[in-house]
Structures are given as structure tokens and as C-alpha cells.
Nucleic acid binder design. Structure first.
Length: 930
RNA sequence: GGGGGAGUGGCGGAAUUGGCAGACGCGCAUGACUUAGGAUCAUGUCUCUCACGAGGUAAGGGUUCGAGUCCCUUCUUCCCCA
């Protein structure tokens, strides 16, 4: 055959056929083992990004592999369709969010189909679809009814000029990014989920195979600490509760600090301090919590004029306010122990407050007056009454003898009690936004609240909305939405907050099970078979947000009995439901990120008219190299480092110069056919995240149009360590093209001999079997690049003997058959096409993964490596069946060993046997120690 | 500020988790075939050395018969919270 590998001629043909045949439809089949493979669903931003391909196509390859291994695989897809960008589009371009979102999803579905992935589209779930968000609201209601949802106060970014709440990403440097108006921090009533209720359970990872860094990040995020709560009384008898992890240092508390927002502040402030305190409170409102908690920030604060009594020693200590104490953490008040806490120490030194040492390290004498930093290490308690001499270790909580003793004593004498605290705060789900799932709550006239009854769900988002340029949610002035009646028929007002989109993404993979089911969030018949998710893939940036929220969600669902029907059906099918609903995903793997590659900017010569330093160019010419600048050139020349519209920044021998290209300027780019425009000039690109504004976005549609889907898939899997990612390099794709071309040519050329050479055929069989194991091993380990390199090696080792006519028809056909199945997870289209051309029956994707036979993979001859330490001193060809004794004798008799030993006897001889590891043979070694 | 990673040829990356460092690919070089080559084929390609050989996985130290891999110190860098 003479036809060339031309993916365009068959890729969409197969995609259509697979879809028409419902090849990837996954249905419950209790006779077969199941595998639920899940990859994070995209936000419908409008265009599929190369990052989506990078995340999804390797996951698809693995799902396909599991299918070939005999599993019934569910691999669904959907859209996380609520969110702020749709609203911004509405405000900026006047497109309704729903229209924008649905149009984007249509486009992205087409793009997703071009991947040739085995998505089961009949299970698609879309979070902004009322069929979906009815159940998001239903979950909210269940949580509300069971005290897992409540209203509380939280700090928000508040714009006083716009009278609206802003999201974190809308605030840059304390100002609204759109209007530049100042933003302040303000306490507002918001909806929360009791996230902390499952804090302890979420610290357990025993039953799940998740990456270690993710577990560490989640553990730190939850931030469990053991300590005590202690109540101090002010001189006016107002109680101030504090939380401390170091109750053993209570005697060193020489002042207290309240958060500026603490409710007692105005009450206890004395008249002569009031002006200063009020001024400080206003100042503190400008800083974000992240800034405030930064340790190296200059400490600020104001004395309230009031005093408290230290309950352990009766000492009278001043009460200050300072912004390094946050109202949202602990109780919003601390006891300050400057000798043993660095932040308190800096504060004390700045304001001249007493530093009293109460933990004295061994062999050192600390003095409060002369210390230069706080001491937080181990030592013996001093200045602490009856506890003097007690040893304070480095352990935290009860394990520390000093803390243990003090807590017991405090509980006995009713001064304080043991307490566990978490850095984790409750999950704030309120968003003062329109394009989100409405919170199904009604505010009655009398101020009480009630949940919308289940039969009235969903509370629909109105689509006849108009956006104000302020960004205020249109729900807050949409009368038809706002006005309703309560359960007694009295007029009432709807809640206008919508839910955080993390709420939708916390349960979407349950909706995939039965996206049209209308009696519950999911059909227990489906759930009993498919749950839990076996493998989940996505970006590590979701480590502490999405992945913690979703764990919480599943635990809450379990405790509210939402899996009971499912468990019953499992039992009916002899599946033990125990421990299956504690965690949503059994295995998690994170892919890295594809970054924009580095690209040099065009080197240009620009001439025109100067106005001061700035050049108004009427002619810009791109040249090859900086050395081609003509002598005596009077304009600006150099590499374009940046271009904004017609404004160029040019690096002229190290100096940055600005050139404005005038409207009808002559632009000459030799590489691009004339006429050229300013927009075709390329500027320098650094390796960094891809974004439209940087102009370094790689468009997968263009790549697919040029090279075909299989090549793009395989290249993404081959060019990177999947868990790491890296900068995009357009050149490497050549290697994949050559590989697929070679495979194509080899298969279409057919066998070159009827009878082959037995030795060559045995070698081919060996390579084929080694490859089966190696390709599988890479897929198991998410090491897609090594799987593909194994496939390239297999092709390399087949090509020459086939060409030389050493492989007979039978072995040739069997080898091609196996190779195509091995390739099919990675390059599903070309594998199917060649499969069909070889006359095998449709479809390759319904075949079984070839069985690895170690006996066929094994080598007959190998090399014995003789080492002295880490250095190779000889190599001797031997049989693989060599025994330890034979190997040692052979090694000692070798030329290299003779030279090394020079007649002496070795101190030690170590033998390392050769093995077959993941389809790859290793050589036996003998290490001779002298 | 806090947290998590990563440092291996000109480049992307391999290396059974302690056992011949640099697989596979890109690029490059030389040659072949060609009207042509950004096609294809062959050979080579860590560094130094004509060679024999020696050195080499960010830098320094340690453990070990043996270290890219484990431990300590330093440096660089990326990501996340944002």
C-alpha cells in the first residue's frame, strides 16, 4: 500500500462511529468488576485549553486501559457552570450569564469530542441546570435542617462606594480592581457549613491512597492544636476568654491583646484612650487578614486603658488592641507571653511592655530585659508558683508534662479547661452574586427564617435580570424573585445570597450516576454499583479547598443517611457497604501544569520621529540577528520584549525604549507574506502560566487540525512527567509524528515473508512481551511518558527484522495485533483504523489487554557486571541461569578482578542477582570489596 | 507570611525506591538518496583526553560494599493559600 498516515482521513469517522454505536456507554453490570474513573470537570470559560487536554487525555488513556483489563469503566464528563466570569461577561458585554454559559458549553462539548476520549455523554451533568441545582438546594436544606448550615458573621471585602461585597480576586491592593475604589474589611452575616464538625475525621487518611503532599497540606490546613481555654476577668468583672496552646506559660502573661473587632473593646476602653482606639480600629479595617497575620510585619497596637487580672497569679496586666489578633480565629483575644512567643515579644519590645521568663532552658540563663527573641524551646518552669521546676518538653498538648500538669490543676481549680482548636474555620458558602445556586431560604416578616419546602424546589434563578454597573447582585432588586410568601401565607422575602460554586463541585460525581433521576440526587441502583470513585485526577491547586470540601460533603451525606438505600442494594448484590461512604475518592493523582514556552521576541529596526525619548515609528523592519543592524543606524533597534497594541518596548543594548508605531506605518516581516501589521510582531515570552493577556496560549484546536488528535494526545503524554508538567515546546511533536508514521507504514506494508527466521521471531516475541508489561506498568503508575517510550522501543525493535524479511506472516500478525492493542489507550483512532485494515473485528477498544507471559519475556543471555565499589571493572557475557556461586567465581576469575586484587584475597564479595523488573531485565552484578 | 514540591546532557525527560546514570524523544553533526529538503535512511552525540583513562546527577558534608536515589547544611527555582 502506498497511502500515508493521514489522521484527518479517519479520526472523525471513528469518533462518529463510536458515538453512534454507544461504544462508551457504561451500564450497571453486576457480573463485571466496576471502575469509576473521574477527572475534574471544566469551568465553561469558552475554549478548551491545552491544560484540559493535558489533564483529561492521560486520564482517558488510563480509563481505556482499565476497560481492556476487563473492568466495566465509568468515565463521565460535565461542567462546573456557575461562577463569576459569566457575570463579568454580562456586565461588560451585556450577554446574559445563562446564554453565555450555554453557548460556551456547546463549543466546549465539540472540542471535548475531538479528544476521542471515552466519555459517556449520556451521563453529562451541568451544575447550572435546574435539574442539577434542585439537588444542590436539597443538600443545603438537609444540612440546614440538621444544624450543619447556619448563619454567622464573617469578614468580607466591602466597597463603601458601591455598597457591595467583592470576591477576593476582585480586590487588588485593597482596591476594587474594576473601579479603583477603596475596599474595607467588614463583618457581615453570612451562611456557613459546620466544616469543623468533621475536622478530626478529615485528618484521617488511612483508607485512601492520596498523594502525601496533599495529605500534609490538608492536615496543616485543618491545623489541629491542643491547649486550654482560660477566662481572664477585667477590673470591671467582664470575662475575656482566651485560647492558648501553652497554658504552661500562663505565669508569663504580662498583657492581653484583643482583636480591634472584639465586642468588649468599646466597653472597656477608658475615656482618655477612646480617640486613639477608634482611630486604630478604622485603620485596621483596611488590612486583609493575610496581611495582618504576617509575622514580619511591623507590629501596631493601642492601649485601651483597661486592665485584666491574670487568674493564675492575680497580677494586674494591661489590655491592648492590635491587628495581629484576628477576631475570626480562636476567641479574638490572646494572653500575651512575650518571653515565649515571638509575635508577643516584638509587640512588647515595641511598646515597652514587661517580658517575664517562665520557661528556663537548661544550661542558659534567660533574662526578660536582655532577651533578643522569644524562647519557645524546652526548659523548666520558673516564676510559676507551685509549678516551679516542672519540665516543659518540646511536645505539644497533653504529651508535654508541664502542659499536662497545668491543665489538670486549672480544671480542678476552675480557672480553665482543656480545649482543642482548629485553624480551619467553618465553610463560608454565601456569595452576594447572581450566577450561582440560590439558597432556598425564606425570611419571614417577624425576622425568622424557614427553608423552602422540598416540593417547591428548585428555587429558580430568574433569567430576566439586569445588571447594574456596580456589580451588585440583580437578585437584590428583582421583585418577582424577592417577594414570596412563607408557609403560613404571609409575605416574606427570599434569601438573595447564592452558594459558593465549591458546593456544586462537592457532589457532581454523584450526579453523574444518574443525571436525569428526579427522586433523589442520585439513583441508589447506580450508586450501589459504581461508588465510590476509584481514581480521581486533577490539579493539585485544589488540595485544600475542593478536595476538603468534597470529603466533608460525603461524610455529612453519610451521617444524614443519604447512602442507606444504596447500602441496601449493595447487600442485595453481595457487596459489603461497610466503610464505602467515608471518603468520596479512593485514589487521587494530580497532574502538573503545561506552561507557556519561552520564545524570543522579534529583533527590529524602527525609524521615525523622536519626541523626547519616545520614537513614533513610521517604519519597522524585522531582521534576523542583532548583528545585522546597519552601521550608523539612527533609529531604535533590538528585541521586542513587550507589545501592547501599537506600543512596543524594545531592549536596545540593555536599555528599554518605547516605540509607538503610527497608524499607517510600514511593517516588514520577511517570514510572513506582506502586507504585515503591528499585530504580527512577536514579543519575548518567558516560561510562565498561559494566559490570553500574555499571548502565550497554545490552542489545542489548531494542533488537532494540524497533526490530528492522536498525535496531540500522545505528545502531551510523552513530553512531560505528567505529575509535574512543564513549558510547552512545539518542536518535540516531531518525534510522535515519526513514531506514528513508522507504525502506520509497518502495518500497511504487510508481512514481508511467509516463513521467518526462528531466532529473530523469538526475539520479537520477547520484545512484545516485555512491552506488554512495561506499557501496563507506566499506566498503572500514571507514568504515561515511559509507556509511550516503551511503545517506541517496541516499534524500533520490530522494524528492522520485519524489513529484512525475518518475521513470518503468523508472528508478524500476532505482533502487530498486540502492538495495536497496547497503543489503543493512547492513540485510539489510529489503533482502530489499523486494526480494521488488518481485518480484525471491530472494535479494538473491546478487546482484552494481552496477557504478559514472563517465560516469553525472559532473556537467555546477559552480562555479568563486575564492580569494585561503584566502579565497573569488567563485563562478562553469561547465561541468565547463572547461580550465585558461579557468578562470584566468574567475577573473581575476570581480568578486571585479577588486576584489582593483585593476588590478595577480597574482604567481601557481594552478589546482586539479575531480575525481571516491570518487563525490563537487569543484569547480575558482583561487587568485590578489597 | 505560611504550606508543598523540584534541581540529572543544548532541550523534554528515563533510571525496579540503594545496584552499569543519561532509556525514549527533540535538537545538532557527518554521510547516503534526491532537481530540491523543514522528507527518508545510516552513523554519532554527558564532559575532558589523539588515546589509555579520568571525571560527572545544583554546592558541601555524612551513612553504605555500593548513593541521582537515604540523612544533615547551603544555594537556586516552581507551585499553592491568592
Amino acid at each position: 500500500m502506498t497511502d500515508k498516515y493521514d489522521p484527518k482521513s479517519f479520526e472523525s469517522k471513528w469518533q462518529q462511529k463510536w458515538e453512534a454505536d454507544r461504544l462508551y456507554r457504561s451500564e450497571v453490570d453486576w457480573e463485571r468488576p466496576k471502575h469509576y474513573a473521574l477527572t475534574m470537570l471544566p469551568y465553561p470559560s469558552g475554549d478548551l485549553h491545552i491544560g484540559h487536554w493535558f489533564a483529561m487525555t492521560p486520564s482517558d488513556a488510563r480509563a481505556r486501559y482499565m476497560r481492556l483489563k476487563g473492568f466495566n469503566v465509568l468515565f463521565p464528563m460535565g461542567f462546573d457552570a456557575f461562577g463569576l466570569p459569566a457575570e463579568n461577561a454580562a456586565i461588560q458585554r451585556g450577554v446574559p450569564p445563562a446564554k453565555w454559559t450555554y453557548a460556551n458549553m456547546d463549543r466546549m462539548r465539540k472540542q471535548l469530542r475531538s479528544m476521542g476520549a471515552m466519555f459517556d455523554w449520556e451521563r453529562e451533568a451541568v451544575s447550572c441546570d435546574p435539574k442539577f441545582y434542585k439537588w444542590t438546594q436539597w443538600f443545603f436544606k438537609k444540612f440546614y435542617d440538621n444544624d450543619l448550615a447556619y448563619r454567622g458573621e464573617a469578614m468580607v471585602n466591602w466597597s463603601p462606594t458601591l455598597q457591595t461585597v467583592l470576591a477576593n480576586e476582585q480586590v487588588i491592593d485593597g482596591k476594587d480592581e474594576r473601579t479603583g475604589q477603596p475596599v474595607i474589611q467588614k463583618l457581615m452575616t453570612q451562611w456557613f457549613f459546620r466544616y469543623t464538625r468533621y475536622a478530626d475525621e478529615m485528618l484521617k487518611f488511612d483508607d485512601i491512597d492520596w498523594p502525601e503532599p496533599i495529605k500534609i497540606m490538608q492536615t496543616n490546613w485543618i491545623g489541629r492544636s491542643e491547649g486550654a481555654r482560660v477566662t481572664f476577668l477585667t477590673e470591671g468583672q467582664d470575662p475575656i476568654e482566651i485560647y492558648t496552646t501553652r497554658p504552661d506559660t500562663l505565669w508569663g502573661a504580662t498583657f492581653m491583646v484583643l482583636s480591634p473587632e472584639h465586642s468588649l473593646v468599646s466597653k472597656i476602653t477608658t475615656d482618655d484612650q477612646r480617640a486613639a482606639v477608634e482611630a486604630y480600629k478604622q485603620e485596621a479595617a483596611k488590612a486583609t487578614e493575610i496581611e495582618r497575620s504576617s509575622e514580619d510585619r511591623e507590629k501596631t497596637g493601642v492601649f485601651t486603658g483597661a486592665y485584666a487580672i491574670n487568674p493564675v497569679n492575680g497580677q494586674r496586666i494591661p489590655i491592648w488592641i492590635a491587628d495581629y489578633v484576628l477576631i475570626t480565629y480562636g476567641s479574638g483575644a490572646i494572653m500575651a507571653v512575650p518571653a515565649h512567643d515571638q509575635r508577643d515579644f516584638l509587640f512588647a519590645r515595641k511598646f515597652g511592655l514587661e517580658v517575664r521568663v517562665v520557661i528556663q532552658p537548661e544550661g542558659e540563663k534567660l533574662e526578660g530585659a536582655t532577651m533578643t527573641e522569644a524562647y519557645s524551646g524546652p526548659g523548666y518552669m520558673v516564676n510559676s508558683g507551685l509549678f516551679d521546676g516542672t519540665y516543659a518538653s518540646e511536645d505539644k498538648g497533653r504529651k508535654n508534662p508541664a502542659i499536662n500538669a497545668v491543665i489538670d490543676w486549672m480544671e480542678e481549680s476552675k480557672i480553665g479547661r482543656e480545649s482543642v482548636n482548629y485553624r480551619l474555620r467553618d465553610w463560608l458558602i454565601s456569595r452576594q452574586r447572581y450566577w450561582g445556586c440560590p439558597i432556598p431560604i425564606i425570611h419571614k416578616e417577624n425576622g425568622e427564617m424557614e427553608a423552602v419546602p422540598e416540593d417547591q424546589l428548585p428555587v429558580l434563578l430568574p433569567d430576566d435580570v439586569e445588571f447594574m454597573p456596580t456589580g451588585r447582585s440583580p437578585l437584590t432588586y428583582h421583585d418577582a424573585f424577592l417577594n414570596t410568601v412563607d408557609s403560613e401565607g404571609n409575605p416574606a422575602r427570599r434569601e438573595t445570597d447564592t452558594m459558593d460554586t465549591f458546593m456544586c463541585s462537592s457532589w457532581y460525581y454523584y450526579r453523574y450516576l444518574s443525571p436525569n433521576f428526579d427522586r433523589a440526587p442520585f439513583d441508589p441502583e447506580e450508586a450501589a454499583y459504581w461508588l465510590p470513585v476509584d481514581v480521581y485526577t486533577g490539579g493539585a491547586e485544589h488540595a485544600t479547598m475542593h478536595l476538603l470540601y468534597t470529603r466533608w460533603f460525603t461524610k455529612a451525606m453519610r451521617d444524614l443517611g443519604m447512602f442507606e438505600d444504596t447500602a441496601e442494594i449493595m447487600r442485595d448484590n453481595e457487596r459489603n457497604p461497610e466503610d464505602l461512604f467515608n471518603e468520596p475518592m479512593m485514589r487521587l493523582r494530580n497532574q502538573g501544569q503545561v506552561l507557556g514556552g519561552e520564545r524570543p521576541g522579534d529583533v527590529v529596526l524602527a525609524t521615525g520621529r523622536y519626541e523626547g525619548e519616545k520614537l513614533f515609528a513610521n517604519r519597522v523592519e524585522v531582521i534576523d540577528k542583532i548583528s545585522e543592524v546597519p552601521a550608523g543606524f539612527g533609529g531604535v533597534f533590538g528585541e521586542i520584549v513587550k507589545r501592547t497594541e501599537n506600543l512596543l518596548t524594545i531592549n536596545m543594548a540593555g536599555v528599554l525604549r518605547t516605540v509607538e508605531v503610527i497608524a499607517d506605518a510600514e511593517v516588514i516581516i520577511p517570514a510572513i507574506p506582506a502586507p504585515n501589521s503591528v499585530n504580527q510582531l512577536k514579543h519575548h515570552l518567558e516560561i510562565q502560566r498561559m494566559s490570553k493577556s500574555k499571548g502565550n496560549v497554545v490552542n489545542p484546536d489548531e494542533l488537532v487540525a494540524e497533526y490530528g488528535s492522536d498525535t496531540v494526545r500522545a505528545y502531551l503524554m510523552f513530553a512531560f512527567d505528567w505529575e509535574k508538567g512543564g513549558p510547552w515546546d512545539p518542536n518535540g511533536v516531531q518525534g510522535i509524528i515519526r513514531w506514528l508514521n513508522d507504525v502506520w507504514n509497518m502495518v500497511t506494508a504487510g508481512p514481508q515473508a511467509e516463513q521467518g527466521d526462528p531466532e529473530a521471531e523469538r526475539e520479537v516475541e520477547r520484545r512484545v512481551h516485555q512491552s506488554i508489561e512495561r506499557v501496563a506498568n507506566g499506566l498503572e503508575k500514571f507514568s504515561f511518558n515511559t509507556s509511550i517510550s516503551s511503545l517506541m522501543e517496541l516499534k524500533n525493535s520490530l522494524r528492522q527484522p520485519v524489513r529484512d524479511g525475518k518475521i513470518g506472516t503468523e508472528v508478524w500478525r500476532e505482533s502487530m495485533r498486540t502492538m495495536l492493542i497496547l497503543m489503543s489507550p493512547f492513540t485510539p483512532h489510529v489503533a482502530e483504523e489499523l486494526w480494521a485494515r488488518l481485518g480484525f473485528s471491530y472494535s479494538i477498544h473491546q478487546q482484552a489487554w494481552p496477557v504478559y507471559d514472563p517465560a516469553k519475556a525472559v532473556e537467555e543471555a546477559t552480562t555479568l557486571v563486575v564492580q569494585a565499589g561503584n566502579k565497573v571493572i569488567d563485563r562478562i557475557p553469561v547465561s541468565v541461569s547463572i547461580t550465585e556461586d558461579e557468578a562470584k567465581q566468574t567475577a573473581l576469575a575476570s581480568e578486571g578482578a585479577r588486576k584489582l586484587l593483585n593476588g590478595n584475597t577480597p574482604k567481601k564479595v557481594i552478589y546482586i542477582a539479575g531480575r525481571m523488573v516491570a518487563g525490563k531485565p537487569t543484569e547480575p552484578k558482583v561487587n568485590i570489596v578489597t
